[in-house]
Design a protein around this nucleic acid. Structure first.
Lengths: 103, 103
DNA sequence: TTAGTAATTCGACGGTCATCGTACTACGAA
DNA sequence: TTCGTAGTACGATGACCGTCGAATTACTAA
């Protein structure tokens, strides 16, 4: 099965303002927490969110373009994975600090 | 000289969404970097920013209400200090990760 | 008291953003 | 091919946000 990776910024293109802005929204933070709990990747639609499908796609796009997550196709589904290593090397401690927050 | 501390959230009232949202704005990130470089505190007006005084006050208020910094009076001036310890205990690594980003 | 300085508050304006519904694309199954 | 499913793209709308100028407060110095 041929999988395709959706366009995303290279590590050196990632800007911290964009990452922080992406993380500073409740729905997107929920997505990031779900991805962190599933290192193997999560199908977008499986995350329970209080928004419609189009809004969900909108948030995933913002997270992907900010460099927070990576998405690849898998048939009709799309699997998203947290770019944990890239973020950790760019901003060591940032992600773990965010995830340490009690919800 | 009597100094007063401006109202700010207690550590248990600080929400990670608010902190991330506060940090995810270029002007405010500049302020945080300036405060991080001066642990003793900085007079608001001394930070070079591409905005007017009223906008500067607006950003400082957002940072203070999010729990990112603390402000106390010193005569006509107001000294702001990064709440490094509070943030570090709530979100270990977050602040250092943000500050590690090359500008 | 008077003048001057540092900073905030208020109201307004323009731009951005989260949200939705609808239409559309891509893929798999029958 | 036809249908159903997963997801995206587009346009519209209402809310929020960053910015500013003007007015105001708080403090110091003369």
């Amino acid at each position: 099965m041929a999988t395709k990776v959706l366009p995303q910024p290279a590590p050196e293109e990632i800007r911290v303002e964009s990452v922080l802005q992406a993380l500073g929204e409740p729905v997107r933070l929920t997505i990031v927490r779900a991805l962190a709990a599933n290192p193997a990747g999560v199908c977008c639609g499986e995350i329970e969110l209080p928004v419609t499908a189009s809004t969900r796609a909108h948030h995933l796009k913002i997270l992907r373009e900010a460099g927070v997550l990576s998405t690849h196709t898998d048939g009709t589904k799309r699997i998203s994975i947290l770019r944990k290593d890239d973020l950790e090397s760019l901003y060591p401690g940032l992600l773990s600090g965010v995830l340490a927050a009690k919800q």
